[in-house]
Design a binder for these strands. Structure first.
Lengths: 231, 231
DNA sequence: CGTCTCCTTGAATTAGATCAATATGTGTGG
DNA sequence: CCACACATATTGATCTAATTCAAGGAGACG
C-alpha cells in the first residue's frame, strides 16, 4: 500500500549520507552491530520526496533504516493540523513499534533510500542476543530523550527560541544549515505556522544573526547569539 | 544530596497503589519480572510532597520504581519556566538514563514510596538476560510513545483540548478524576498558565461537561463531550 | 481566628495565528 | 531563451487565544 510508490533498487549503499543529511546523522548512534545481526527483509528501497513510507494504523511488520535522505514521522489531528514528531537522517531507524501498529505515518522529505527489516525476526534476536537488546534499549532511550527535549521546546519556548534551536540543531560544523525540508515542515515540527517561521528567520537576518544564502541554505553569522536565545 | 529529605522505611510494599495513583498505573506495564530479577539497592524510601528525588545533572547511579504516590519529572529553562515531562504513578520507573547523568529533575507530587535500584547491576543483567532486555526495551518504547503523544498535545492542541485530554487521561472507570497535583503542575505539564487551566475547567463546569466536587476531585458528567473535543 | 497557600476571576496586553497579497524561484513547453 | 504556470516563501494587516497583571475567595492548619 504505502510502499507501492517505492522503487526497489539493488544497490545504493555506497552512496553515503549526503551533506544535507549529515547534521541529523550526527545525532544518531552507530548502527554497525545491526547490519551484521539483522538481515534486511528486502533490497533497499527508494522514495521520492513527499511519497508515503507507511501510514498511521498500518500493520508494523516492517521497520526501516535510513541509508540516505531525510524522513519525517507525523501525526494528524482530525481537522488537518499536523505535528511532525521528528526528522530522521542516515543511520536512524523509523517505524519500529512495540505493538503491531504504526502510531504515526512516515513520508520521505527528500529523495530517500531505506532498508526494510522484518520486525518479527528482531524480537527473537533481541530476546536471544543481549548485546543487540542493549543496543535497541539504548536506541529507544536516546529517542525518548530527544522527544522530551522537543516537549520542552513546544511547551515552554517562544517562536524565536524554537526557530533558533532548530537552526542550531541542523547546522553543520561550518555553521551552514542545509534544510532538506520546506518551511511548512519546519512549522509543523516546531508547532508554529509557516508565516511565523518565515518572519522569525527574516528577523534573525535583519539582526545580522543569520544570512540566507537561499531559502533552503542558511549560514549562522552569530552562533553565540542564537545559543544565548535558548540558554 | 537530593535524597537527604527522604526517610528510609523498612516496609510499605504491602500498601498497594492508592486509588489516586490508579489511573496512572493503568498506563504502565506489569513489572513482575523485575522484582525478581533486580535486587533493590536499598530499602524503599519515602518522600514528602514537593521534596526532591534527584536533580538535573546528578549522577544517575540510581533509578527508582514508584511503589505508591505520584512523581513528576521536569526540566527548567534559565528564566524559571518549567516543563513537566510526565507524572509517574505506582509501577512506573523514574530516573533511568543511558548515559550517567539525569536529564531532568524529579520531585514527589504527593507522599511517595520509591524503591531505589542500582543502574550498574541493570546493565549487566540486561546484556545477559534477553527476557529482561526485552522488557526494558518495551518500557522505553512505551515511554517514547507517550512523549510523542504529549508533543502533539503541546504543538498542535488548544488549551481546551489539552485540559480535556488531561482530564480523560486521569479519570478512573467511574469518571472520577482524583488529582494528586496542583493547578500549577497541570499547567506546566500542558504548556499553559495556571490561570488558563483554571478558567478552562470552570468553563467545562459551566457547560455541564464536568462537576468540580472540589479543586482536586472532578467528575466527568459528559465524557463523550470531552472525547469529541480531542477527536 | 488569623495566616498561608492554592485556586478562581477579571481586565488589559501580546505573541502568534489568520487572512490576504505579493514575491521568488523552478521547471515546462513554445 | 523567454513566457507561463505552479510551488514555495515572504510580507503586511488584522484578529484572537492565551498570557500577564491584579485582585479576591476558599480551604487547610497551627
Amino acid at each position: 500500500m504505502s510502499i507501492q510508490s517505492a522503487i526497489a533498487i539493488d544497490q545504493g549503499f555506497n552512496a553515503r549520507t549526503t551533506s544535507r543529511a549529515a547534521p541529523l546523522m550526527a545525532q544518531t548512534a552507530p548502527t554497525s552491530a545491526w547490519d551484521d545481526a539483522l538481515a534486511p527483509a528486502r533490497p533497499a528501497v527508494q522514495f521520492a520526496p513527499d511519497s508515503p513510507i507507511y501510514d498511521e494504523g498500518d500493520d508494523a511488520r516492517t521497520f526501516y533504516k535510513v541509508v540516505s535522505g531525510v524522513v519525517r514521522t507525523c501525526k494528524l489531528l482530525s481537522d488537518g493540523r499536523r505535528q511532525i514528531d521528528a526528522f530522521h537522517g542516515a543511520g536512524d531507524i523509523v517505524g519500529l513499534e512495540i505493538d503491531g501498529v504504526h502510531r504515526m505515518y512516515a513520508e520521505a522529505v527528500s529523495n530517500c533510500v531505506l532498508v526494510p527489516y522484518r520486525r518479527q525476526g528482531l524480537e527473537a534476536m533481541v530476546a536471544a542476543d543481549g548485546q543487540l537488546a542493549q543496543q535497541f534499549f539504548s536506541y529507544a532511550m536516546r529517542r525518548l530523550a530527544r522527544a522530551q527535549d522537543h516537549s520542552l521546546l513546544l511547551g515552554r519556548c517562544t517562536a524565536i527560541q524554537r526557530v533558533a534551536a532548530f537552526l542550531l540543531d541542523h547546522a553543520d560544523e561550518r555553521d551552514i544549515v542545509e534544510l532538506a525540508m520546506a518551511r511548512q515542515d519546519i512549522a509543523d515540527y516546531l508547532g508554529l505556522t509557516i508565516e511565523t517561521v518565515s518572519r522569525t528567520i527574516t528577523q534573525f537576518e535583519r539582526d545580522g544573526v543569520v544570512e540566507m544564502l537561499n531559502a533552503r541554505r542558511i549560514r549562522l553569522e552569530d552562533r553565540e547569539a542564537l545559543e544565548d536565545l535558548i540558554a
